[in-house]
Design a protein around this nucleic acid. Sequence first.
DNA 1: TTCGTCATGTAATGGGTTACATGATTAC
DNA 2: GTAATCATGTAACCCATTACATGACGAA
Lengths: 181, 181
Amino acid sequence: MRTRGAVLEFSILGLLHDSPLHGYELRKRLTGVLGPFRAISYGSLYPALKELQSRELIAEAAPDPQPVLTTRRARIVYEISAQGKDYFDQLIAAPGPDAWEDEPFAAHLAFFKRTPADVRLRILEGRRSRLEQRLATLRESFTRAGERMDAYTERLQEHGLDSVEREVRWLDELIDGENRP
Amino acid sequence: MRTRGAVLEFSILGLLHDSPLHGYELRKRLTGVLGPFRAISYGSLYPALKELQSRELIAEAAPDPQPVLTTRRARIVYEISAQGKDYFDQLIAAPGPDAWEDEPFAAHLAFFKRTPADVRLRILEGRRSRLEQRLATLRESFTRAGERMDAYTERLQEHGLDSVEREVRWLDELIDGENRP
DNA sequence: TTCGTCATGTAATGGGTTACATGATTAC
DNA sequence: GTAATCATGTAACCCATTACATGACGAA
């Protein structure tokens, strides 16, 4: 039980880096980071928080001294620790080899403002070549299986190709923006 | 251990409905059905075949009487059974409530040629309203969190919105094609 | 008084991947 | 002879979800 959801951990640390939060609120913010279609469940979130705490990367914040006059159920507010900050800065500066995949990429992008400029560019270009690779695969399967492909499958593949091409163009704009600020 | 990967099963049955195949070849075709980014692993495929066999929805085909002159390692060719065909026809005619999700939708589309016209339309329109729902969520999160969104996140959300809008238009074309053949 | 939302948590389950094991055949 | 591809399979693990349990508060 070494690593528990690398992307999830990364995102939690990134959000707590900004401000202390309790689980319920954290979940809403995570939805913003990971995209609205990949809302994390509490069954994932709370255990993840427990584990980060046990590794002393986050800690329970001191309970509010003057309770905001009947807060609902006792909330557990977590804040990032010094080690946690170090660890996050380390992660953000040295993206893993999977940083080009869909979800890790989205998570990295969410914290781009705090990412060193050179790393930003490396991530964007890594993502770009990942997409080029997909395009190659798609185009190949297009020509290879072109004979026995029915009309519906063909439309689907066309649309897939189109989407990836558009993402490449979108990336190019971002890369362009990095190169001349 | 009742159901083992509904989408995977559905796709296997659909492919074997066309012609008997062995696992290795099946995997390649599955990549075509589920999309090139979601290649199934053998660790999923072979157990799934075993289970379909145990439920007598597929069966090992009789070994080639005149072996094609040194076929490689003994291949196990599976063919769909009568029950298997019935089951598949049932699945294809009564799509589940998750048929609008990304992967089930792709799988259904792959076998659209053999899907009754009214069911085709229902699936396409179900998918469409699923996407509209996503658009609503996206637009809402756009306006709600608009203040504290940095430039990078904003670009990402814009691109996401754009992609979904394009898929809706693509679907509209398909629906249009269904309505006047 | 009942419903919606806030709030935290656990156990069971699901649906896959990775790594490993095995081995034949073809192309260089 | 050695690398790539064909071919099948298992065990260990991973990362998440669902369903459940618990409970308080505000609004209709």
